[in-house]
Design a protein around this nucleic acid. Structure first.
Length: 739
DNA sequence: TCGCGCTGTCATAGG
DNA sequence: AACCTATGACAGCGC
């Protein structure tokens, strides 16, 4: 027979393993250190939650009725545990609001730039003041990020220790993955940093205030554009976006661009929510606060990502006389461009770097097809403008299939999930936790943990009427009074006065409805240990008068069969008080009771054995019930975690969908911008020969496609190498830890 | 007859 | 030290 110990121990271990397999980190340390006892109990042995319960004291104070001495602790524990699980789930997948703003503006020859300014969300534009906020200090940024992450958690109602101290490597890796995805999409790591965003919003306010004082600027967002200080999303560096005056390069009809964008993009009325200095500069595109881009790109109002996609300061082409597009400082900068390299943005600007991370626009912005006159079908096949960005992110790292495999969801489920989301069917993965399943779970819980419910019923029924409990079992003719009388009559025991109603107190959780009636307990065991032969003989002897077949005798026989062995022994040894008293009286009262009677050594020995066995019996019942409760609660936790996981997976699918939308929008924007670029002769650039490239230093360059292709390939290689190295490191760590 | 689950009991550890 | 509880292990019983 499989021992109960082995069964339960392995069962708990299996649950733990199951939790790990489904991707839930069983943070034993948390439980070992958080005053949450059960797992510690399981692993290290009993302590607080499973500490001894003074049942006799409970009985003394509360009479022991309906008391589940462990339930309170267990409930608290599992509630806390669920919260911790949810917190952990949140810190792994909850992505803070992401707003990616980008502007396309145009700078007039005097350096005046008009534009509008997004007011909230991820502020990619910056000012000199923003440099102080973000700073180049990555260490500070990291801490801010994590702090902000923690705040996000707290905003969600979760209480968690400081993230920096609690995040495991897995968590950090997940954050990094999400961060890289957002970086690849143009969102800086600061999107995870609520405080950082707050600061930037404050800066925005300052900028707006400054803009009101600046007559140079026509629009409120112009101030930010004027300063053109950009935040590198990856490094956190802030620097001004500048365009060396490439006077001989691209000419862009910005009025046309503006009109075009107003027509093609749903920003028309916002483009009107800004002032355009048409005389000197034109705003190619502007995305004011709360602008339509958010409308376009954001999902449902409660969607965690609010994607404002715009191209801050990605102004292209001033006029034929002035290629510099952005800041006033441009004029002071030398025209560094050549015929091959057409810098559109000064080298110290990282506006787009902030928006798109370090992604090379050569890979980012190559449209598969460029409309307009620039089409060159004879040219090389144009890559997907966002191929390096979203394909990498979506297909390589966060594809649903990967997600399904990595996180234990089968691919079919994942694809169904995606379909479900795409169809907006509203189907919920929570079906696994439907009310029916819940009820069934609860039902199984209550049924399998019958000890608790039955104990309650037994206690209540016994306290009110023992006969009612008895009749429920089909027996008739019993009442405690009559039973007492019958027993006295039949047994003739000296001083034997069973108080069965009191016996009901023996166990607060006796699993048997008959437990309050020990003599009805079905005990067929033949434990003859610790029994003197004489006592055994006496116990086995039929009681006097048992041969008579009267009704009372039949009842007596029946009751006699229902009595426990210890009761038989006590009766045989003529113990003058009930086993209930023997077992449940506090030791002082128990000793006092013993002192009232003249008992033989054999009687005293039996009484002590009865007391010991009776207490141990209850303890064993409690122990088994606790094990069962623990298993059931673990089962419920697994269900909860699976439900959370399904929700998170659904959210992830939503993110992926929004990423696709962003990809499409950025792609079309690239096409529009590129299509409007004109060389000094007023001719469009060929997309097969030129491409916009976003250099690592923040510049936006119009470069030959061959060069752009090379750089794009180089960019693609880097993340893969990094991942490969990471895997090697982790495997090395595993190997080390195994050793 | 065998396997399984339930129950009681013992032995032991620990509070 | 005595007492109590918790729990692993074992055995008996009924199904």
């Amino acid at each position: 027979m499989l021992s109960l110990k082995k069964y339960l121990t392995e069962g708990l271990l299996q649950f733990t393993i199951l939790l790990s397999l489904i991707g839930v980190r069983v943070d034993v340390d948390t439980y070992l250190t958080s005053q949450l006892p059960p797992l510690r109990e399981i692993i290290l042995g009993p302590s607080s939650a499973y500490t001894q319960t003074q049942f006799h004291n409970l009985r003394n104070t509360l009479d022991g009725y309906g008391i589940h001495p462990k339930s309170i602790d267990l409930d608290n524990y599992f509630t806390a545990r669920r919260l911790l699980s949810q917190v952990r789930a949140l810190d792994r997948f909850q992505v803070p609001t992401t707003e990616v703003n980008a502007w396309l503006v145009h700078r007039d020859p005097e350096g005046s730039v008009s534009g509008s300014q997004p007011s909230s969300g991820l502020t990619l534009e910056s000012s000199s003041g923003l440099q102080d906020v973000t700073g180049p200090d990555n260490g500070v940024r990291e801490s801010e990020t994590e702090q902000g992450f923690s705040e996000d958690l707290e905003d969600l109602g979760a209480v968690a220790p400081p993230v920096s101290g609690d995040l495991t490597k897995e968590d950090i890796d997940l954050i990094d993955i999400l961060w890289r995805q957002d970086i690849d999409l143009g969102a800086g790591r600061e999107i995870f940093d609520y405080s950082h965003r707050q600061k930037e919003q404050d800066v925005d306010k300052d900028l707006q205030d400054g803009a009101e004082r600046e007559d140079t600027w026509s629009g409120e967002g112009a101030e930010a554009l004027a300063r053109n200080l950009l935040v590198d999303g990856e490094t956190g560096e802030s620097f001004p976006a500048q365009v060396p005056g490439g006077e001989d390069q691209t000419a862009l009809s910005l009025e046309e661009c503006l009109r075009l964008l107003e027509a093609t993009c749903p920003f028309g009325e916002n483009a009107e929510a800004m002032e355009v200095n048409t005389s000197t500069s034109e705003i190619l595109y502007s995305a004011p606060p709360g602008d339509p881009l958010s409308t376009n790109y954001s999902l449902a109002p409660n969607t965690p990502i609010n994607q404002n996609v715009s191209l801050h300061q990605a102004s292209l082409g001033g006029c034929s006389q002035d290629f510099s597009l952005f800041s006033p400082e441009v004029e002071s900068l030398p025209a560094a461009s050549s015929s091959a390299l057409l810098p559109l943005v000064p080298s110290n600007s990282t506006s787009l770097n902030s928006t798109f991370g370090s992604t090379n626009l050569a890979g980012l912005f190559f449209p598969p097809q460029l409309n307009g006159t620039a089409n060159d079908t004879a040219g090389p096949e144009l890559p997907d403008p966002l191929g390096g960005l979203l394909d990498e992110a979506m297909l390589d790292e966060i594809s649903l299939m990967d997600l399904a495999i990595e996180e234990g969801f089968n691919p079919v489920q994942a694809s169904q999930l995606e379909e479900e989301f795409d169809s907006d069917s509203g189907l919920s993965l929570d079906s696994s936790h439907s009310p029916s399943s819940l009820s069934s779970s609860e039902g199984s819980s209550s049924s399998s943990s019958s000890s608790s419910s039955s104990s309650a019923s037994s206690s209540s029924s016994a306290s009110s009427s023992a006969s009612s409990s008895f009749s429920e079992e089909g027996a008739v003719g019993y009442s405690s009074d009559s039973e007492t009388l019958d027993l006295e009559e039949a047994e003739g025991a000296v001083g034997y006065q069973p108080e069965y109603s009191k016996l009901c107190r023996m166990s607060y959780q006796d699993p048997s409805p008959l437990s309050c009636l020990p003599y009805l307990e079905h005990v067929g065991h033949n434990h003859t240990y610790n029994m003197a032969p004489s006592a055994l003989d006496a116990a086995d002897l039929p009681p006097p008068g048992a041969l008579k077949k009267g009704g009372k005798e039949k009842q007596a026989d029946f009751l006699d069969k229902q009595m426990s062995r210890d009761e038989h022994r006590a009766r045989a040894m003529k113990i003058p008080f009930t086993n209930d008293k023997i077992i449940n009286l506090p030791v002082e009262e128990f000793n006092e009771l013993l002192s009232k009677y003249q008992l033989s050594e054999a009687q005293l020995s039996l009484i002590r054995d009865i007391r010991r066995r009776g207490k141990n019996k209850m303890a064993a019942q409690n122990c088994r019930k606790r094990k069962l409760d623990t298993i059931l609660n673990l089962e419920r936790d697994v269900e909860d975690l699976q439900r959370d996981k399904a929700r998170l997976l659904r959210e992830k699918v939503e993110f992926l969908r929004s990423l696709r939308q962003m990809k499409q929008k950025v792609q079309s924007l690239y096409q529009e911008v590129f299509g409007r670029l004109r060389d000094e002769n007023g001719r469009p650039y060929s997309p097969s020969q030129y491409a916009l490239q976003y250099a690592g230093d923040g510049s936006v360059l119009l470069i030959p496609r061959t060069l752009a292709d090379q750089q794009a390939r180089r960019q693609e290689r880097k993340p893969k190498d990094r991942r490969k190295k990471k895997i090697q490191d982790s495997s090395k760590a595993c190997y080390t830890s195994d050793k």
